[in-house]
Nucleic acid binder design. Structure first.
Lengths: 339, 339
DNA sequence: AGAAATCACGAAAACGGTTTCGTGTTGATA
DNA sequence: TATCAACACGAAACCGTTTTCGTGATTTCT
């Protein structure tokens, strides 16, 4: 087994000091041309690479960024990670990912774990439980320790830090408006419990669009679905109970499930019922009919979050002014709405 | 800004030596009860946590495991990661994820980056380009440095290391057999280029099943699709050219796209054409009709890979005997095949 | 009382780098 | 020829831990 070579090995072998080796490899002017060439050649031959851990300890920066997301088997979060990865790698950072699995405790544990030296900063979306409990002390702690934090998508006003979100309200507003313009009369909303910041924003947008177009806002048309339970019964009951000709869904799966229920009731999409979802994932794209959806631009969001974090990490002065970047969502029109 | 507290701080504050603090916090018998209590109380008060980087340097182990996957916006790989995460976290390891984006160069760069101290070992699935080029020197290098490597799904015989795969051949065999038993006569295969280890395995299984049941194997019934290009034209052309009553697809998207094309041709699934895919993802589950599919058990695969890696990391003796764990795939019957 | 054992703690090395500062040797200058 | 830069390199501190070993003080034993 070929152990990794260190400065010490090179120094011993070439009978110079460790400092000389270190300087030679950095092409320091302090070292003579001959010595430098000798050392560099040797290092190259043995494929010397500095040990990241030692560098981290010395420099007090890891060049790692910690990402904590609620779930990874999820199109939107996966695209965000891809965006983060892409941007961070370009700027020489590694990405350490932890999954909170929507659990407050796991979020806290992961955060503490990473905060003890493993990363220079955090990018995260809050877990469902954290949004529900509204307990953000772990976020405050890392910020007090001087570790920058960027929240995305699932954010909170309680914490003053950089944030990246899409215009959830506006996205829901335009989607609803689209349905209205298409002539739909009774437009329902399928959403989750309100403790999700994004859901309540989207609900606001939906309601506002209705109001602005003199539609009545009825709580009867708002169906709150469990975000875990996959049973379609509540959806079927809803369609039995309420006669609607359009539904805005706050995510992709609700949209797909709604399509399915509508079809099973013998109704046609979009002729009888139009549907719009959120998250432009594979499901929306490949479903039959394909689902009109509000694209959240996860990749851009990830890139932007990474940029904000790294900029802050690398800026000299501590800027106490935090920014919230709002990305514009895009309505992707497909077959579940009338063109 | 509250900087992280170190042993040195505690030592200075309590006017003892760093060694005493360290020992006290480990409840060493060397230190008197009084001193220990004092130090422990102080550490608790200031929420002392040892610096992971320093520990890594000292112990020469990071408790990180590096995962390199070709793509993260991908149901199967995401489930594998979830499995790895779950298992690794339980055993006190962090997971560092890098995405090769199907590129050989990025795979190499990521690997070198992580190998210089960031991780104790690797779990990876080969990028498409790596499988195509058949250049595995980067894998050999990390192994020579004593870093354990576990390959999953996209593996190679060229490298002697632990592996986790599903019985791709067997999975394709049973799926094909299922179609045969259902009475289908002309069974096509939609696959990718052969350099993907999994695709060629699945092709073998498909052919073997046909042969074993006295079906003719015809290359005309095997359609090789590009794994990037999303254009359905080749599929349409195929159905125009060949009359088939069943298709086995080596992944989920091929399956979904095939359903779509079949439907657009005015044919019925599964009455006119039966379809089976691979990867039990959301698409299969939510498509209409839902897709019968071979479940690859990504989560189990991830857990198993993590277990193999960590076991090796923590075992005393260097065991030179490597294991290939073959997980059993499961056929999930849905609406795209006749029950 | 003197020797031995025990106790409680500190000094120092080590992990693998970077960096500041000191120093011996050389060559140029007055 | 004496003085002084410039040069080329090494020693040592430092990042935050752990751990071995040494040591002064107290206790125990003879």
């Amino acid at each position: 087994m070929k152990k990794k070579i260190t400065l010490k090995h090179i120094a011993r072998e070439l009978e110079v000091s460790i400092s000389t080796v270190s300087k030679a490899l950095k092409d320091s002017a302090e070292i003579s041309k001959d010595t430098k060439e000798k050392i560099q050649a040797f290092a190259k031959l043995y494929n010397y690479r500095p040990n990241n851990i030692a560098l981290s300890l010395k420099n007090r920066r890891t060049k790692n960024i910690g990402v904590i997301i609620p779930e990874i088997v999820h199109h939107f979060f996966a695209t965000v990670i891809r965006g983060i990865e892409k941007y961070a790698n370009n700027r020489g950072y590694n990405v350490i990912i932890c999954v909170s699995n929507e659990s407050f405790d796991k979020e806290v544990i992961n955060m503490e774990m990473l905060a003890n030296g493993s990363t220079d900063g955090f990018i995260m979306a809050l877990s469902a439980e954290t949004e529900f409990k509204e307990d953000f002390n772990h976020l405050r702690e890392v910020m007090e320790q001087g570790m920058p934090l960027v929240l995305f998508d699932r954010v909170t006003n309680e914490i003053d830090c950089d944030k990246v979100v899409i215009d959830d309200r506006e996205g829901a507003y335009s989607a609803t408006k689209k349905l209205i313009n298409n002539g739909n009369k009774r437009i329902a909303l399928f959403t989750t419990e309100n403790f999700f910041s994004v859901s309540s924003e989207r609900e606001e947008g939906y309601k506002q669009a209705l109001l602005d177009h003199n539609y009545e806002v009825s709580e009867n048309l708002i169906l709150k679905l469990d975000y875990i339970d996959m049973d379609n019964k509540p959806i079927e009951d809803f369609f039995d109970r309420e006669k609607v000709d359009a539904v805005l869904c706050v995510n992709e799966t609700f949209g797909i499930r709604a399509i399915r229920v509508v079809q099973e009731m013998g109704l046609k999409v979009p002729e009888d019922v139009s549907l719009i979802g959120f998250t432009n994932g594979f499901l929306s794209k490949y479903s039959y009919p394909s689902l009109t959806t509000v694209d959240q631009h996860g990749g851009d969001m990830g890139e932007k979050a990474a940029q904000m974090l790294i900029d802050r990490l690398e800026s000299e002065d501590e800027n106490e002014i935090y920014e919230t970047k709002v990305l514009k969502s895009t309505l992707i029109e497909r077959e579940s709405t009338i063109n």
